[in-house]
Design a protein around this nucleic acid. Structure first.
Lengths: 94, 94
DNA sequence: AATTCCACTTTCTATCACGGAAAGTAAGGT
DNA sequence: ACCTTACTTTCCGTGATAGAAAGTGGAATT
């Protein structure tokens, strides 16, 4: 029954970690996240895109200091969804 | 980095629920679990099999009272794996 | 202005997971 | 021998995931 409460977009292992990192750190840049998760650029890019298309993650590309960096952060919908998912997991896992 | 700590066998939504139910109830029979999860027999059977092949679930077929029932329970390895997974999730989800 | 970098993004290709329907199996009843 | 119960396995189609390689767009360099 609580299956409906588990958000498939967030539940996938990598995306759960992405969401958790963003929930904890507010914003993280692409390269740093890639290193922390130890995945290829294409994989991270695609998972971030899934989260973005779900309206959970906001992508901001900023050029500063002769470097362009992509900053990632949760939207308010993303924060809500993550909180709900976290609650569902806690409920399940005790 | 904690990706390694998430057990793919347990993480799948349905199997996470199965494991959680068995962790909470010790044993549950197939039919009851099927109703609680609201899935088809084939789907439950296959997920249970995955858990069994991982050594996490023990299947016991018992005939009593003119009815045969399949009882499911976690093995000690299953209990350990679930506990570890639960810890990893809590760590991730805060 | 053309070229090179950089930092991702998208495409390509292959594999693997998942679901349900339907067919199959095993152990009793009748 | 046949039927029912209670799953199990097969069949088949769909969707997710991964990584390599090619592509894109905006600096920075020449």
């Amino acid at each position: 029954m609580p299956r409906a409460l588990l958000d498939a977009v967030i539940h996938a292992p990598l995306r759960l970690q992405i969401a958790a990192m963003l929930a904890a750190a507010d914003t993280v840049d692409f390269a740093t996240m890639r290193e922390m998760l130890d995945v290829s650029e294409s994989v991270l890019s695609k998972h971030v895109k899934v989260l973005e298309e779900a309206g959970y993650v906001a992508i901001r590309k900023i050029t500063s200091d002769h470097r362009q960096r992509t900053w990632l952060g949760l939207t308010s919908a993303g924060r809500k969804a993550f909180a709900a998912h976290a609650a569902a997991l806690r409920d399940l896992v005790g």
